[in-house]
Design a protein around this nucleic acid. Sequence first.
RNA 1: GAGGGUGUAGCUCAGUAGGUUAGAGCGACAGUUUGUGGCACUGUAGGUCGUGGGUUCGAAACCCAUCAUUCUCCCCA
Length: 461
Amino acid sequence: MSKPSLPQGTRDFAPDVVRKRQYIFQTIRSVFERHGFLPLETPAMENLETLMGKYGDEGDRLIFKVLNNGLDNPAKREQVLSDFDRVLEGKNSKGITERALRYDLTIPFARFVAMNHGTLSFPFKRYQIQPVWRADRPQKGRYREFYQCDADVVGSRSIWNEVELAHIYSTVFRELGIPVDIRINHRKVLAALAETCGGAEWTTPITVAIDKLDKIGLEKVKDELRERGLDEGQVSRIEEYLGISGSFSEQLEAVQRLLGHLPSAQQGIFELKSVYELYQGEVWDQKDDSDLKIDLTLARGLNYYTGIIFEVKAMNIQIGSIGGGGRYDDLTGLFGVPDIPGVGISFGVDRIYDVMEEKKLFPANLERSTDILFFNLGDDESRRSFTLMQKLRSQGVSCELFHEKAKFDKQFKYAEKKRIPVAVIIGGSELTAGTCVVRDLNTGEQRTIEQEQLLKEYFKL
RNA sequence: GAGGGUGUAGCUCAGUAGGUUAGAGCGACAGUUUGUGGCACUGUAGGUCGUGGGUUCGAAACCCAUCAUUCUCCCCA
């Protein structure tokens, strides 16, 4: 028997880590609920055909496929062998695999909406916090199993949805204590830029290149654009675009001068301006102290985005984005239900965790587990402890009895390891007197009180 | 898919001109006269040196393969 191990790219979460992760989840969940979003869960497995072709060629390769059962059935041997040959040719074969682990939460959501569009009331606002799986090569901060945390609105073109989602970002990170920039841009502005540099078909290569700006720098981006076949005039036009700076409105004005003659740019500029104004509320003024920033270099990889796009970056820390999203048209069209537009955002929980760990932002009380440890000094004493514990527990106080009669030393050390703050000691003399010793394990102070008094004091908690 | 790094005790790691019984710290467990912990002291347990080959009189060390893990690129969260 070899040592037990974990599949590559998966993790156990020890109790203290689970506590911290749940703190993040619950904060996000609570904000979602306050904005009228409803929870949704979908299966870990989807039909393979639901997922294939939705994430591009690269995405298809990274989908975890589930092997069919019963392949060893001798009666099916010939069929299985020919099916497997098809797999070896790179074709999918239902005879070998027809299910796969979910790759993200968006496509299963689109599948759900397409299946239930007759009964859902629109706009449908859902959030979903579940693990997803990717057969990617794990590296720092990237895993084969990880949680996604999404909120989407489908069935509405209103720009208010973008405003609300931006506000969700702002609220969540404020509550978690992480200072952030919420950056927005518009795909139609990027599309307009591409239009002036060769045509709409250049949108993807151009956005992919400029998305790398803060990672590889301006010169490398220009190199990449040249390699992809843009001429110097086009490259310098993009450079001019990337050089735009200033306040939100100043940047919009600059884009207006550069691309305003194109209808798509006009719509993008208008929507960016609208989101910003609505987000600021009725006290909006020209001051640029908002956490909502415009970032014309923001592109986002996923090419199904068509309108406003979001990205959230933690300030004062060297880490990638901790959230992203955007508007897409007609996501359910892939499943035969057209004309349902949507907009959504996602939280990068693992990175948020890393930021909070590094900045020590988790509340201290997450470490608390049991409130009271009852010492075990014998069977009769323990019976009394047990009775008291049941009463305390019914009042919401968490307590436990040391599992066996043992030396004080051992019981103290157990309490220490579990960070239990209070020990209650009931020995022979306390048992007959109806009292108990309550000891504060942090300060070492202790006092003897009536057992009834113990119940009263802790009922107040 | 491409390219690097690393695998020695539960954890973090020492350990080469190849040489006999492979070490430390932390942790664990036990004890320092069994109703008061955190400190200290003493002791105990725990390793086929990732696995399989090869070179050698001799391999934890050198070579090859393999597995695991980790990082970078691609791509993404």
